[in-house]
């Protein structure tokens, strides 16, 4: 008798994810919307370029037209909600009992869920990052101000934009495992990942700057998303920012594992 391999659990989670219509709708429409924003914003800049002052032209960052903070907020909320719902959906419907009665090794179920969610959102994030860049730079090249992949910092920005999705999705899943309530989970995802960090600004108090530098959306906005970085101790460093991008989803994954393992269902 063969036994279930981890690959089978991955396949099961893959089937579960895509057999819900909301998944394709959320990912499809979300991607279109964000790429559409990039096109719209780039066309705006293209059209008003002759009216820009010299100062405005000098300060123009083509990457910002591709993927603005607003687009990032949408991506973070979308991916975070997707991650939260993959686990909240199991608890609110009671499906979790069916799932765990079929596969009693809970840590393997959670690991498969984390892997599939991370992979799907990373693919989506990469598509969005590449798509927004391609569309906007194609438009802006008409004014000769497009960035190219070889420009300093561009690859880092594109990678950071792509990684926002899986980072948010895994954090969302951790929040979902802790909260186990649809509305509460989505509100918590929005608040923790986007709304609260939006109020964080570099200050004269270094301890606050150090604290802010632990928040994914903050380090994205004030470091990873910027092609050219100022050497300022008030701002997060690139290495520190990548560490934040790694540690949040890792902590969320550990929290999900522990919570699902310990709780009665």
């Amino acid at each position: 008798m063969t036994t279930a391999r981890f690959r089978d659990l991955l396949a099961a989670e893959w089937i579960k994810l895509w057999s819900l219509r909301s998944t394709s709708w959320l990912i499809g429409l979300g991607t279109l919307a964000i790429v559409g924003f990039a096109a719209n914003s780039s066309l705006d800049a293209y059209n008003s370029w002759p009216d820009f002052t010299e100062m405005e032209k000098a300060r123009f960052t083509p990457l910002n037209e591709a993927f603005s903070a607003l687009a990032a907020s949408m991506l973070v909320i979308g991916a975070g909600s997707l991650g939260a719902l993959t686990i909240v959906g199991e608890y609110t419907t009671g499906l979790i009992r069916t799932t765990l009665a079929a596969v009693p090794a809970r840590h393997r179920v959670v690991a498969a869920k984390l892997t599939v969610t991370a992979a799907v959102t990373l693919a989506t994030g990469t598509l969005i990052s590449a798509g927004t860049f391609g569309v906007s730079q194609a438009i802006l090249s008409g004014r000769g101000v497009a960035a190219s992949l070889g420009d300093p910092g561009v690859l880092r920005v594109l990678a950071a934009n792509a990684l926002l999705a899986p980072v948010s999705a895994l954090v969302g899943m951790g929040i979902g495992a802790l909260v186990r309530h649809t509305a509460a989970a989505v509100v918590t995802v929005c608040a923790a990942l986007v709304i609260v960090p939006t109020f964080f600004k570099p200050t004269v108090h270094q301890w606050q700057n150090d604290l802010f530098a632990l928040v994914p959306f903050y380090v994205w906005r004030n470091c990873l998303h910027l092609p050219q970085l100022r050497d300022d101790p008030a701002l997060p460093t690139v290495a520190g920012s990548w560490a934040v991008f790694a540690l949040w989803p890792l902590a969320a994954a550990v929290a999900t594992l522990i919570v699902v393992q310990r709780r009665d269902v």
Binding site: A4, D8, L9, A12, I15, S19, E90, L95
Partner: peptide, 22 residues
């Protein structure tokens, strides 16, 4: 009997369970 996700088809629900057990 309620321990299912109403958004899935009967076949998809069972297929996910079957796949998870090889």
């Amino acid at each position: 009997a309620g321990d299912v996700h109403g958004g899935r088809t009967a076949a998809a629900h069972l297929y996910a369970l079957a796949r998870g057990n090889g």
